[in-house]
């Protein structure tokens, strides 16, 4: 590509970005104190956005206009206005926040405090901690049930998922799952909780009715040993029929038929394929690779990687803003 051509391309991209507001992918990287912004149309890096220290889990605020970024070493979430792409405030999250979820009414944020071994309830409007529940050590993934009554949190050390009643802020059940549980997804009908087990090469499928283990889905990757299959990230389609799991050091993403509880495809990604995120159309899956500092973009229909884009140091998660 000659210089002239390149210039024309980037101008085009810039124009497209402004006129059509092409989707933008925000990627947090643990070692950068910044987010990498990627144009989803061209799959090129548009720039970086400074944020708080050690950004990890990100989620859109219920209004869809702001992005919340949990920062482990700032003990807060950075609140980023998506229209201006500027930080507009901080929300205190307690010591060493890792992952969070937001109640369906948008009022409460539930965050795991990794060092303390607690799950904190944060009143978003007041910016205050409402309650704190002691859980097993190194709590990680957080998921609120669609009815807003229960919040689930994994403890990596205890190999438990704690089911916590939101109204009383009490643990109602400790559910034994596989070794080092990480992230969770809830099926479209709300009946099943899927939990990735990093050191068990598996997903535990738990009933949300009685909190009993229904099934353990084990992963196998040709040429990889069980010890190298370390699932972490999980995403499900809105209709609840398909799930996607990043298999960590096996460097693949598993596509899963949820009803059949079977892996349908394995797609090669980068090193230590970690958190996975879908776009709104569920046409593309964005996979961050923790050991190769890049992000693999997968065409869901074709089950094929389109491109791998360099991002920040130790990328954690991608969020598609469209």
């Amino acid at each position: 590509m000659n210089r002239h051509h390149r210039l024309a391309c980037s101008t085009l991209a810039l124009l497209a970005g402004h006129a059509l507001a092409a989707p933008l992918v925000f990627v947090s990287s643990e070692k950068d104190n910044a987010l990498t912004l990627i144009d989803a149309a061209t799959l090129t890096v548009q720039g970086t956005l400074p944020t708080c220290k050690r950004p990890r889990h990100m989620q859109l605020a219920p209004d869809g206009k702001r992005l919340l970024v949990a920062c482990g070493e700032s003990h807060a979430a950075d609140v980023i206005d998506l229209a201006t792409r500027k930080s507009v405030g901080r929300l205190a999250l307690g010591d060493d926040p890792e992952a969070f979820d937001i109640s369906p009414d948008g009022k409460t944020l539930f965050v795991s405090n990794e060092d303390e071994g607690t799950l904190s309830f944060i009143d978003i409007a007041r910016g205050q901690k409402r309650a704190s529940v002691a859980v097993g050590k190194e709590p990680e993934g957080v998921k609120v049930s669609p009815d807003g009554k229960t919040v689930y949190v994994t403890s990596e050390v205890a190999s438990l998922v704690h089911a916590i009643d939101i109204a009383s802020a009490k643990v109602v059940k400790n559910i034994q799952v596989g070794k080092r549980p990480r992230r969770m997804a809830i099926s479209a009908d709300g009946a099943e909780l899927w939990v990735t087990n990093e050191l068990d090469a598996s997903v535990s499928i738990v009933s949300t009715q009685d909190h009993k283990l229904l099934h353990t889905l084990r992963f196998e990757v040709p040429g990889a040993r069980a010890a190298d299959i370390t699932p972490v990230g999980i995403a499900m389609t809105r209709d609840g029929r398909r799930a996607f799991v990043g298999l960590g050091r096996a460097n693949h993403v598993a596509f899963i038929d949820v009803r059949a509880r079977k892996v349908t495809q394995l797609v090669l990604a980068g090193k230590r394929a970690w958190n996975v995120s879908l776009d709104k159309a569920e046409a593309r899956l964005y996979v961050v690779n923790g050991l190769s500092d890049d992000m693999t973009v997968i065409d869901v229909a074709a089950a094929k990687a389109l491109k791998t884009v360099p991002v920040g140091r130790v990328p954690y998660q991608a969020v598609v803003v469209e």
Partner: peptide, 10 residues
């Protein structure tokens, strides 16, 4: 000490 929670739970 760090296992107190799961020991109690079980």
């Amino acid at each position: 000490d760090e296992a107190k929670f799961e020991l109690d739970a079980a």
